[in-house]
Design a protein around this nucleic acid. Sequence first.
DNA 1: ATAATTCATCGTAATATTGCAATAAATAAA
DNA 2: TTTATTTATTGCAATATTACGATGAATTAT
Lengths: 110, 110
Amino acid sequence: MGVTKTAAFTADQNELAAMAKALAHPARIAIIEYLIRVNACICGDLVEELPLAQATVSQHLRELKEAGLIRGNIEGVSVCYCLDAARWSELRDRMGAFFEQARQAGTTCC
Amino acid sequence: MGVTKTAAFTADQNELAAMAKALAHPARIAIIEYLIRVNACICGDLVEELPLAQATVSQHLRELKEAGLIRGNIEGVSVCYCLDAARWSELRDRMGAFFEQARQAGTTCC
DNA sequence: ATAATTCATCGTAATATTGCAATAAATAAA
DNA sequence: TTTATTTATTGCAATATTACGATGAATTAT
């Protein structure tokens, strides 16, 4: 039917998938990398930095904001964006735990 | 236009995004968690484990296989799946580096 | 050889994502 | 007030994803 059966999976599985989804586009990776580099910037900076139209950049920013990975503070006529440190730590921990789990499991295939 | 501008981003950005995309669905998270738990299993086990039809499970398995995260070995009439340890390590390292980068950056927002 | 089992693939429908032009909204500058 | 400036939102087109029934391909059992 073309819609994910969210209710059929655990909250943990859905949350981890949602976090991964927020990172599942090169533009959003680029936005985050840029934010890491400059610490904070306004939307216009990203429009210059990325090969995308302003509307498209704004859309990607909204997705990152909805995933809680970044925050946007209105400063006069512009909006200042930066990583949400707390949420970012959570993501790192969740992903880290996920990978650690796999590391400890045996990896001998059939 | 509804198509990601892959060529406009770096290989690194595209690869990281592709890895994240492979994890960006609860069913695929569930598949990987199950594989971690049982180490290896056949496709039929996953069909019983997941609330999805066989065709859908097979499709998710293909995506994970194409991302290189799992391997499938034909064993008679069934197919045995397991995590690809090497690729999994690579993913962990790439993600880890990404998060580490963010951790070292300042996090004071505007 | 025939039937059963297991999985992949095809075709299709429903929905989501990506991208942009155009426009709206909100603030600052003249 | 009028005009820029900056960003979000709307509307649309193109494409991708998700899901499943039906069918095909390969192997094993009878």
